[in-house]
């Protein structure tokens, strides 16, 4: 009955293995690096005036708390604002600046700025892919589709409405400038309530 011996040895080995693998070490926590907790759009009026910042902050990432949305003040009529967007991951200390990743993959990303119909404002892109250095090649992109990290917002008459800022990953590029045409996946999106006066 060699077989029985053989089997019992194996079974014992199995039991031994089971007993050994029991460890009481605690697992390591995961801090998501990809999370974008904070989006800040800074609007600096050309020719001086009050800077307006729009911020959406969601410190628990995909957790249950909704983002906190804030607008620092009202926009002025008939003004051209130089805009920039900064994305942060504040779950890490110090906060990680996500912009670097977007810039490195500029050809795969695009911001979309959509004022609703009641807001008398228009947004144009002030950058294109060739402004950024590709992570892949280490050189500037050769394509010139818009990215939107830098933009220009122009107001006309006094009004109220929303401006939605959306970052899409892997959109169709080039596109007709609408979210619908661009497709892709939303990395971040927020609508800000604005007043122009």
């Amino acid at each position: 009955m060699k077989t029985i011996k053989f089997l019992s040895i194996f079974a014992l080995l199995g039991v031994a293995f089971v007993s050994c693998s029991d460890d009481d070490e605690n697992p390591d926590p995961v801090n998501e690096e990809e999370t974008i907790t904070t989006m800040t759009a800074t609007l600096v009026p050309q020719g001086g005036g009050t800077t307006v910042t729009l911020q959406s902050q969601d410190l628990d990432g995909d957790g249950p708390n909704p983002p906190m949305v804030s607008v620092s003040g009202d926009l002025s009529e008939n003004t051209v604002y130089n805009g920039t967007v900064v994305l942060l991951n504040e779950t890490e200390t110090p906060a990680e600046i996500i912009n670097e990743e977007i810039e490195g993959e500029a050809a795969e990303h695009q911001f979309f700025f959509v004022p609703n119909s009641s807001l008398n404002a228009t947004v144009t892109y002030a950058d294109d892919e060739s402004d950024y250095v590709s992570d892949e090649t280490g050189e500037n992109f050769t394509t010139t589709n818009p990215v939107g990290i830098v933009f220009t917002l122009t107001t006309t008459d006094a009004s109220t409405g929303t401006l939605a800022i959306t970052l899409r990953h892997e959109p169709k590029k080039p596109n007709d400038g609408t979210l619908a045409d661009a497709g892709g996946e939303t990395d971040i999106t927020q609508a800000f309530n604005l007043i122009i006066q």
């Binding site: 974008i36 989006m39 969601d58 990432g61 995909d62 249950p64 983002p67 939303t186 971040i188 927020q190």
Partner: peptide, 9 residues
């Protein structure tokens, strides 16, 4: 649906 910075899920 729950809201995050990426929109609603």
């Amino acid at each position: 649906a729950e809201f995050t910075n990426r929109g609603a899920f």
